[in-house]
């Protein structure tokens, strides 16, 4: 589904992504863990097309997408969520999700029919809100809901795109334990039906969701394997014990 080959990204003196090779198989959840500043977000931004790689290649469904724009990649079935919530703040939650649905329904050069009377559009958007438990907040302005709800909205928008590959950048970041557990159960439901590249700090979430785990430290993949392999890997334990509390 997704292949990352010898990917490089440098910021000034730092190699944020250093010769990374990685593959996400069809309907697999591939988690990336690693300490702060390891280059996880940089990696996802390159896959989504927001950052140009300094070297290497990104292949999606056997197509070289390394130089495609983010919008082009989105239309090919790549959706990302943002670690730092990035939505249209003055719009309602429903309108935000509508934008995501609109994005996948082909071009939006439609000048006449009001979106509010577009039942297919509205229903799909409501469905996505329902999935994350935000249906009661549909008419609230995105700028006025809680932080946790922002995070849920991020997920709803990514899901509403109905992507082939979902790129989730720390979806539980800033969520309380309850919301976090809820999100894990939502992802649990789509597990096996969707390919997901998941970045996550919450180890419980990672170990309950992932099929494959890769460990990124200082821009390099230091280990990659099944849960058990990763759990047993002494290098990973060292890196984790050394880098994070």
């Amino acid at each position: 589904m997704l292949e990352i080959i010898n990917l490089e990204k440098q910021f000034g003196g730092i190699k944020a992504v250093d010769n990374v090779n990685l593959a996400v198989e069809q309907n697999e959840i591939h988690a990336i863990i690693g300490p702060n500043g390891a280059g996880k977000t940089t990696l996802i931004s390159q896959v989504a097309g927001e950052l140009r790689p300094d070297g290497g290649q990104i292949r999606f469904r056997n197509e070289d997408v390394t130089f495609l724009r983010p919008a082009q990649r989105a239309r090919r079935g790549l959706a990302r969520s943002f670690q730092i919530t990035s939505v249209m703040l003055p719009m309602t939650l429903l309108e935000n999700v509508c934008m995501a649905v609109q994005g996948r329904m082909g071009h939006s050069f439609r000048f006449w029919q009001p979106t509010s009377r577009d039942t297919v559009l509205m229903e799909s958007a409501m469905q996505a809100l329902r999935t994350v438990g935000l249906e009661d907040r549909a008419e609230n302005i995105a700028g006025e809901v809680s932080h946790g709800e922002h995070r849920q909205l991020e997920i709803a928008m990514a899901l509403a795109m109905e992507p082939l590959l979902l790129l989730l950048d720390e979806p539980t970041a800033g969520m309380g334990p309850e919301e976090s557990a809820e999100l894990v159960s939502i992802l649990q439901q789509i597990k096996g039906e969707k390919s997901i590249l998941l970045i996550e700090h919450d180890m419980d979430a990672v170990f309950s969701l992932a099929d494959t785990i890769s460990v990124l430290v200082y821009g390099q993949i230091i280990a990659s394997g099944t849960k058990d392999e990763i759990r047993a890997n002494s290098e990973v334990q060292l890196a984790y014990l050394g880098e994070t509390a």
Binding site: R69, A71, A74, S86, S108, M157
Partner: peptide, 9 residues
């Protein structure tokens, strides 16, 4: 930026 990531040029 978000609109672009949703697939809009």
């Amino acid at each position: 930026r978000r609109m672009q990531s949703l697939g809009f040029d």
